[in-house]
Design a protein around this nucleic acid. Sequence first.
DNA 1: AATGAATGAGGATTCATTCAT
DNA 2: TATGAATGAATCCTCATTCAT
Lengths: 195, 195, 195, 195
Amino acid sequence: MGTRQRILDTSLAMFNHHGSANITSLDIAAELEISPGNLYYHFKGKEEIINQLSKECELAVGTLLARVDLEAISESEYWVFLLSLLRVCLHYRFLFLDLQTVAPPQGNRGAQRLMKQLHSFTAHSLEALEEKALLQVKGEQREQLADNLFLLGLSWLCFDSGDSDDKAVERGAQRLISLVNPHLTRQLNLAGTDQ
Amino acid sequence: MGTRQRILDTSLAMFNHHGSANITSLDIAAELEISPGNLYYHFKGKEEIINQLSKECELAVGTLLARVDLEAISESEYWVFLLSLLRVCLHYRFLFLDLQTVAPPQGNRGAQRLMKQLHSFTAHSLEALEEKALLQVKGEQREQLADNLFLLGLSWLCFDSGDSDDKAVERGAQRLISLVNPHLTRQLNLAGTDQ
Amino acid sequence: MGTRQRILDTSLAMFNHHGSANITSLDIAAELEISPGNLYYHFKGKEEIINQLSKECELAVGTLLARVDLEAISESEYWVFLLSLLRVCLHYRFLFLDLQTVAPPQGNRGAQRLMKQLHSFTAHSLEALEEKALLQVKGEQREQLADNLFLLGLSWLCFDSGDSDDKAVERGAQRLISLVNPHLTRQLNLAGTDQ
Amino acid sequence: MGTRQRILDTSLAMFNHHGSANITSLDIAAELEISPGNLYYHFKGKEEIINQLSKECELAVGTLLARVDLEAISESEYWVFLLSLLRVCLHYRFLFLDLQTVAPPQGNRGAQRLMKQLHSFTAHSLEALEEKALLQVKGEQREQLADNLFLLGLSWLCFDSGDSDDKAVERGAQRLISLVNPHLTRQLNLAGTDQ
DNA sequence: AATGAATGAGGATTCATTCAT
DNA sequence: TATGAATGAATCCTCATTCAT
């Protein structure tokens, strides 16, 4: 694997584990056993690494969202999709933490765009459920429910640092479903789960 | 007001506003228009300031929790209490953010204890509601609901950066109630709100 | 003497001797036997030191020029004034060198202003001599003479690195006078010189 | 054109435009769209490039000076020669700037030799004029005039950054002539100019 | 000839912290 | 209590240079 990719991978792992603010560019170089100069040959600095990871995440999320047709998707397909989405977010979780603690001038424009995308996607999901007469929530409460889903989707990233990522992703998805459940006209048919 | 207290107040405000990681001890001294030496006369460093604020928060939360008798409290009293609790958390909100981004060796033991307290309190609240036959949730789902309440309670701190703190606190409380609502046998009678 | 002033003095000496581009901020700190941190306590960086020296020079030159009344000044007074002016330029000579080699974004706005001042002063000096019927040069040639005086005044700074500053200043002044001499209607009466 | 020559040409252009101190070896490679390794294949480093340019300049100036017979040259031939000489200096002007700002250990031995050559040539020119009874200046003043011519010849390089090189060269030559003019017994007959 | 990844020393700058007064 | 100059370690970053291919 190329050095550039190794830098991205290692940085992502370290950022996720210790928080991007606690990792210096020298830490990354040391971990990779390359010289600081080499790191700067591939990226202008820590910020550019973060920007790149941010772009990757945006791309991955964007691709997933673009592929989904909320009108046409089956329930079990939705479940698979939701797992994929959460898995991506978990993979880049440090971005979502940075959003709250890293000062704006530093590159989190991308992460902010992501937030907006995810937030509006959450709202659209609920609308789609309602059009199918699966969901019964009045206007304002629907917005609140969307907010809650969104917030929970993010905060779960920060706290569920359990065993494997797969397990965590499944728990996260179930957590979100459990928020919607009480408002459904019937239980969703989610293959691969017993919710 | 004594210098020591002014340091605490100003630090808290700056930490909440910019994130504790983005504030240096010189920033605090400059804001207070005191010398760095004076700051260090009162506190060994930034960490000790944070520790002190953390203790204050623990104390405030602890006092609130100790005063509440979940078995005996009325519904409108609970509402008042919930607002107080959230207000305290909002007041020290940087602690909850730091929890996720500041590396463990630095002083967040206190904040972690806080988390545990709040988490178990959330669970107890639900238990109490159930004993009063107000809530209908089965065992595992109750735990999940408690988790959700707890996570939402925290994440709201990070995102609801609206107008006044009072408004934010009220919104936060309603947000939490809306999570419990679908599982109640009857609507709660919360004075001062139309939930 | 205060540390701030010592930094300015030492920097000026080192800049003049080795060229500002060849002196690092650590060099200055080492020469003064202070820590790099201390240097940065007094000045944000090398650039701010240069800016300050530039301001000092502008001020010194500005004061001299403001005091001179070209119409009323006697010949021997002019000689004294010219020596003072050249002495100041020599004292801050690195500024004039930087002008040619340091890229514009870095702070030499001040030095550029200085140039303009000195250039227009040179032209005014010749005009005054002509009004007194001491100088006989036609329009375009007068401009060229002014240019020559100005250029020579500067380039002498860079090359006359002889013995004492006093001697150098005197040589510089005579050099300038010798440029004007052939065009005078009579020899100037300059006390303290045998030109 | 071979790579080696392209490196020299591009370096010269960049050094003249931005000052050699502000150009890194990577800048040169980037401008040429070659790899840094390739640059170092042809030259050991920036210094060797400068040395080579310096040698070229020395050679060009040396050839010009060697060809001139100050005793026998006609006035109009001298004018042509002077333009050639200044053109060469202008072409390699960064060398003359470096002389003043680049620390000695780095390669400007050559440039210093050049200076000496040019300075003594200036003196010889005046001597030749005098032998032909064209110039009337006494001993010490003749030296001073030579110095002035030399200094002005150099400083003009740094400041006359006007339109085309041809125009600049002509202006420079006229500037030098104007310094000598007042001391001539009769006007020189310089073809191609109206001095 | 040419590439481009890699090195490492050095320079700029920040900041928590100390200390004499 | 309070000052503010001083320290020094840590960090970020640049750049001349090397080297395997």
